[in-house]
Design a protein around this nucleic acid. Sequence first.
DNA 1: CAATGAACATGTTGTTCATAA
DNA 2: TTATGAACAACATGTTCATTG
Lengths: 133, 133
Amino acid sequence: MVITIVQDQSSEIRGRGYLVKQRAFIKLYLLTMIERKKDYAFNYLDEMKTELHKFGYQPTHSEIYKALHELTLDGVLYRTKKIKGDPRKDFQEIVLYRFTEEGYEKAQLYKKQMKAELDRCVGLLQKAIRDNY
Amino acid sequence: MVITIVQDQSSEIRGRGYLVKQRAFIKLYLLTMIERKKDYAFNYLDEMKTELHKFGYQPTHSEIYKALHELTLDGVLYRTKKIKGDPRKDFQEIVLYRFTEEGYEKAQLYKKQMKAELDRCVGLLQKAIRDNY
DNA sequence: CAATGAACATGTTGTTCATAA
DNA sequence: TTATGAACAACATGTTCATTG
């Protein structure tokens, strides 16, 4: 008999030791923004862009959507749909995300791991600065 | 008439604004190590591993070789071959790298750009820490 | 143009294979 | 085992296309 162990790769934070992957970085922001206010993908993207463009980083919309989809698949978030604006005259549907029952706790664990990971990355970069300049 | 501008992608430092690419990170270390002592790929790899494993990063040999090949193609380095050990009884060939005529200056420019890039990355990560914790 | 999503294409990196001493 | 290199596979990410209001 062959036993196959399927590991959940989608929530992996670091690849093989270099810097934190963009997807994980985006998830961190999403979880925090969802903690603070219930909103939808397009606005989350907009907020990340305006906050981070000073640092030369402009995330793309597809990365945001993929990150939200993965967090949903991992059971951290669930989706609800809503009509944007006045439901009597507007019809634009938007997708709102909230934490599932266990989602909030999972998010806190994820954020805790990410904190360690971000610290590691800062350390690695500062080490490079020390070593090369 | 169509004018095609071919840009040298191989020496690009940042992709599209997220963190510095591993290849560029490795090149920075290589240039500094070559400044300090003439050595060969295998030892450069070894030095990077021992210096950086505390930060959870273990570069692979293929990345080192590819980085050295690119720096050679870009005219920064040139290669010389040598027999390792006593040439009368040993035959193991190793490849030594040195700066070309304009290589040293090119390397200094590259390092200068990388310094700004590393600072940007540290800033981005620290911003993420501030924003999410 | 705002909003979501998928499909597709490219880029980046790791693992494996080949060769030699 | 050290040493170099290429070929290949896998993964990560960006660009484009499709759809709706």
